[in-house]
Design a binder for these strands. Structure first.
Lengths: 135, 135
DNA sequence: CTAACACTTAAACTTTGGTTTAAGTCAAGG
DNA sequence: CCTTGACTTAAACCAAAGTTTAAGTGTTAG
């Protein structure tokens, strides 16, 4: 087979065909060649999908992935595109880690709390640094 | 003033009046007394709102907060209610921390990457343990 | 009297990452 | 010829935590 249908790609990539159509609509997968209206894919689409999934896994939104892939002069190497976002993502992740650790401390105190009223709990939690809010 | 309007409460709590109505609809704030159809609040509602916000800040959903506040025999102390959920939340937070740390490592490698193609990047990231996906 | 303003409700809208559905097209098999 | 199965599209739907809007009520100021 010189090409794959969207169903085959979906199976091999382990995602739903609807997700592939969605990625195409959002511009994070190139529009597939159509043959009689159906999408026909080459093997390299699987790698493209893996790149999208990897970027998602490290916290990029679909919109950011679109920018990462297309919003640079043609030929810009991944290293440069990547670095355009990685610094900010790292800042976000660090903030997340700080919040999560603060929350963890509060939860651990909560597990041992003997308060008779929620108001008492509030005082305890307030003493343990305000963790701001979940994003 | 022996009571506050929803606008005053919103200002003092630093949230929108619409959020207060939403909390009431969701059952995490008790239904306010109505006078001529308008909500009239006592000062203690501010503390109640703070409890809701604190629970949100440690990762409880509105639904969970409703359970935390109401789904126990009357008089159950906060310590017991709290402990009913804190263990599971801690597990969730620990998973979040592990994922966030994995992502951070990948991002740090990304900051130094000199890859000429995204495919090369993929190989590097794959080598650095799959971080699953963001929740 | 009238305008401005704060409030009321139900219902619709927002965002994100898709999924589901409706209605239609196409090729292969029997 | 007819059915089946995989595909196409646009549009509607999902969750969460609210916000916004429409249409109406009540109070106060001028």
């Amino acid at each position: 087979m010189p090409y794959m249908s969207i169903g085959e790609v979906a199976d091999k990539a382990g995602i739903a065909a609807s997700a592939i159509r969605f990625y195409e609509r959002q511009g994070v997968l190139p529009a597939a060649q159509r043959v009689h209206g159906r999408r026909h894919y080459q093997a390299d689409v699987l790698e493209h999908i893996r790149i999208v999934q990897m970027a998602q896994a490290v916290g990029f939104s679909i919109e950011e992935i679109r920018l990462l892939l297309h919003d640079f002069p043609a030929g810009t190497p991944p290293s440069l595109r990547w670095q355009r976002f990685a610094g900010q993502k790292l800042t976000e992740i660090d903030a997340l880690l700080r919040r999560a650790n603060a929350i963890k401390q509060i939860l651990q105190q909560g597990l041992q709390c003997q308060c008779a009223t929620f108001t008492e709990c509030l005082a305890i939690v307030d003493a343990a640094e305000p963790p701001a809010s979940e994003p």
